[in-house]
C-alpha cells in the first residue's frame, strides 16, 4: 500500500477506473467487432479478415486517409501559431485581455452545427456574405467550396477558428506557469522582446507546445462534424476525411463491422503519427 502511495500510482487510480470502463473496454470491443459483419439489427456474423480484405480494395478509404493527412499538414501550423500569438498577446491579467479572451473562446463554445452553418453561409458561392462583399467591391467571387484546394483550405480555416479558444487557453495556462524571474533575468542580460521569446519563453513552453501540438493533431485528425456540414466530403471525395467516411459507413449504411475495421486501421495510423510527434519533440 505504501509503495502505491510512494510511487504516486494511487493518484492515477480513479482516472484509470473510468478510463478502463468507458474507453478501453469499448475500444477492445471495436477490435473484436471488426471481424464481424453487423448492421445493428441482425445478430453479428463472424467473417474473419474479410472486412480488412475489403478495406484493402476500397479506393475511397485510402483516398480518405490521404485527405486526412493533407488536412492535417494544412491545419496544424495554423492551429499552433495563431493561438500562440493570441496567448502571448493576452496572457497577462489585464482587464482588456480578460474580455478579449472570452471573444476568442466563443467559437469553441458554439455548438458545432451552428458555427459551421454560419461559415457555410459566409462562404457560399451564390449567397455568401463574403462573395457579396467581393462583388460589391467589383471583384469576382471566389468558389470557396467548389474546388478541391479552396475547399480544403476553407475547412482548415474553420478548424482553426473553432479550436483556437481551447488551444489559446492551453498556451495561457502554460505561460502563466512560467516564473516571471526568467524574464527578469533575461531582461537584465539585455535581451530584447523577441530574443526573450525565442531563447527563454519558447523553450520553457516545451511541455505546453507538446500539449497543444498533440491536441491539435488529434482534434484535426478525428473530427468530422464541421466537414459533414460544410462540404459533406465534396467536391466528390476531395474533402472526405476518414472519420466522415467511417461515419457514413457506420450510420448511413449501417456496415458496423466494416466501419470498425476502418476505425482500427485509422487508430493505428493516428497512433503512429502521435508517437512520431512526441518522439521528435521530446528528443530535442
Amino acid at each position: 500500500m505504501s509503495s502505491l502511495v510512494k510511487s504516486r500510482f494511487i493518484f492515477v487510480v480513479p482516472a484509470l477506473v473510468f478510463l478502463s470502463l468507458f474507453v478501453l473496454i469499448p475500444i477492445a470491443s471495436i477490435f473484436t467487432m471488426s471481424f464481424y459483419s453487423w448492421d445493428l439489427l441482425r445478430p453479428p456474423k463472424f467473417v474473419g479478415w474479410n472486412n480488412f480484405r475489403l478495406m484493402l480494395e476500397d479506393k475511397w478509404f485510402w483516398n480518405s486517409i490521404w485527405v486526412s493527412i493533407k488536412l492535417l499538414i494544412l491545419t496544424v501550423p495554423m492551429t499552433f501559431f495563431i493561438p500562440m500569438a493570441l496567448a502571448l498577446a493576452l496572457y497577462r491579467e489585464t482587464r482588456s485581455s480578460k474580455i478579449l479572451r472570452a471573444f476568442f473562446y466563443w467559437p469553441y463554445m458554439m455548438p458545432a452545427v451552428a458555427g459551421t452553418t454560419m461559415w457555410k453561409w459566409l462562404l457560399s458561392y451564390d449567397l455568401g456574405l463574403l462573395n457579396h462583399i467581393l462583388k460589391s467591391c467589383g471583384l469576382s467571387p471566389i468558389g470557396w467550396l467548389l474546388k478541391p484546394a479552396p475547399a480544403l483550405f476553407s475547412i482548415a480555416l474553420l478548424r482553426t477558428w473553432a479550436m483556437t479558444g481551447l488551444l489559446m487557453m492551453m498556451f495561457i495556462t502554460g505561460l502563466q506557469n512560467i516564473s516571471e524571474e526568467y524574464h527578469e533575468a533575461a531582461k537584465i542580460d539585455g535581451a530584447n522582446k523577441w530574443q526573450i521569446f525565442w531563447y527563454v519563453t519558447f523553450p520553457l513552453l516545451r511541455n505546453t507546445n507538446l500539449l497543444v501540438l498533440t491536441t491539435a493533431i488529434a482534434h484535426v485528425f478525428r473530427d468530422f462534424a464541421g466537414i459533414y456540414v460544410l462540404t459533406g466530403g465534396g467536391p466528390g471525395y476531395s474533402t472526405m476525411v476518414t472519420p466522415l467516411y467511417i461515419y457514413n459507413s457506420a450510420f448511413t449504411q449501417f456496415r458496423i463491422g466494416y466501419a470498425y475495421a476502418m476505425s482500427v486501421v485509422f487508430l493505428l495510423i493516428s497512433f503512429v503519427i502521435a508517437m512520431t510527434t512526441l518522439r521528435v519533440r521530446e528528443n530535442r
Binding site: I30, R222, F224, P243, A250, S263, L267, A274
Partner: peptide, 9 residues
Amino acid sequence: MTLFISAQV
C-alpha cells in the same frame, strides 16, 4: 492514444 478516439467511434 485516447486523444484520437472520438465519441462517435
